[in-house]
Amino acid sequence: MKIVKASVVLALGILASAGVASSALAADGPGTEKHDSYRFVVVPKVVHPWFDKVNQGAQQAAAAIKAQTGSDVEIQYSAPQSANVAQQNEIIERAISTRPDGIIVDLLDPSGNRTVLQEAQEQGIPITLFDSINPEGMNLTTVGSDFCEQAEMAANRLIELLDGQGKVAIMMGVPTAPNHAERARCAQAVFDEHEGIDVVATGVDNDDINTAQQQASAIMQANPDLDGWVASDAAGPVGIGQAIKEADKVGKVQLVGLDDLSQMLVLIKEGVADSSSASRPTMQGYWSVINMWQLATGAITPNHIDTGNVMITPDNVDSFVE
């Protein structure tokens, strides 16, 4: 009888252990880890209105997670005062020392940021990249759109407006910013494919509206027969638009802008710019936080989340005005 009792107890014990083990396995599965609160640090390239929209999207995602799960999500937005890799690295390092649940970064230069990202990983802090490409040898989730596609959309739109014939100029952003350089390169490649299009000038605005205005004015002085503009950064087309207005060339010089800064939207509404090829910063911020939260719950996240580009025209501009 004792042996039977002992066997029953042993069998129950084994069953109970198996049950505990299986439930533990379920709790340890991808995406099942729950925390009462999360703190994510967002580190953009620089203080800039475009990144304010990213921050806005990040805050929206934090509110959505709170509404759906009850967990508090704190977004700490920490931007370098200038677009300088060393300064951005210092901001990331300081973020690491506060031991957040994740860091969301827009890399100024993948090779220059690599060391500090590795430091974060060594400290066990997950990272999500937005608006950036992965540093060599790293496999972090990137959130964003295709820069080249964005520039190609703008260049093709301008060619369409000019019926495939005309003299155009490209405004570069910050020469050291890889995404600005890539957009300029891709726009140039599209123009090179069309024999009727002649790229007569390239300006550098350093992502600054006043500089863009000065450069655009000078280029239009030097090329009075210029037909159209594209830009490689968000500040560029705003400055170009002001220069077009000052030179009284609205309608004579076509402008296809970039991104959806409020000044850009006003230029489209005024008819100074035809349109703008825009990435979606709010969506990038939103999905970066969602990805970060998923990582914190133990989920396996995709290599890339494509937030896409959109062409803002007079027909749909109102839907972008806040």
Partner: peptide, 16 residues
């Protein structure tokens, strides 16, 4: 030393 730190020679070194 900054080049050694970053593992790349960034044109923006020294801006700040």
């Amino acid at each position: 030393l900054m080049v050694a730190r970053l593992g790349s020679a960034q044109p923006s070194i020294g801006d700040s």
